[in-house]
Amino acid sequence: MCDWCTKHGAGKRWYMNARNYSNELADELRAKEYLSEQWTNFEQVYIRKIMGISSVDLGYKLKLPIIGRVLRWQAERMIHSESKNRNPRRADGHFGQVIPLEEAKIILGNLAAEPIIENYCMCRWMQRGIKERCCINFGVLSTVIEKLPRFIPENNTARISREEAMERIEEHNRRGYVASVWFQPVPYINAICSCENPECGGLRLRQDFGLHTVYKSEYVVRVDADNCQACGMCVHKCQFGAIRLVPSLGRAVVDPRRCWGCGVCRHSCAHDALNLVPREEVPVARGRF
């Protein structure tokens, strides 16, 4: 459990608190206006200048003496903003956390507000020019995105049932996509994404620039040395280079400091050798969300 669970979890993990999915909360936060602004302008998020600075060559800017530190502080503040006058165009208060398939299915099956849609992934479009239908959105966000044709498959309604949503997230996860759940704006939850690293802008900002746009999951994976047959299949699945095969040892080894606990590697293991354990139980990973 991280700070966001303490603040918005009502004793549970933040994304297991039903209130964070409710239409009442969306109304209270005026989420419809925020989300319309944010999604109409989505592709310019890196290009747009905010107080004179855009994300163009962010890596260079962050390394500048003094300016870099101010910029990092300001970016973190924006990402986690809970202030009343959040700016949707720069995605204030928009961040997420990686979750394993089991939790994604619980959310889609029980907590997500209807209607549920599955639309084109914006990150893969911007980064690779690929239209992949794998972003599952719900509640007020669905009604906003439905009005923006570029996110919606042609001659198609994007709406899916709860059962379909659960099937789709399983397909994506088995394919090797990492499931993540999103606040936008905090604490309203309305999306489960299926991401690749670094095509996902959130993972990119965290993994390459250390900004907390996405938190790691509540778990890390552990290898059962007795069951592992050293086939190496899991290594290809990991988006984060956290698992490797050690030929001399005859088994796979995980670096829990690199592991995001997405659980995706498990789908490739035919020998039941990979299990998620709570992050809290592993000293080097504890508290490192």
Partner: peptide
């Protein structure tokens, strides 16, 4: 086209609507 987006291993380039 999108060719440049797809050949770049670290995905350095972004495609977006003009401002």
């Amino acid at each position: 086209c999108c060719r440049c987006l797809r050949v770049c291993d670290p995905a350095v380039l972004i495609m977006h609507e003009t401002l």
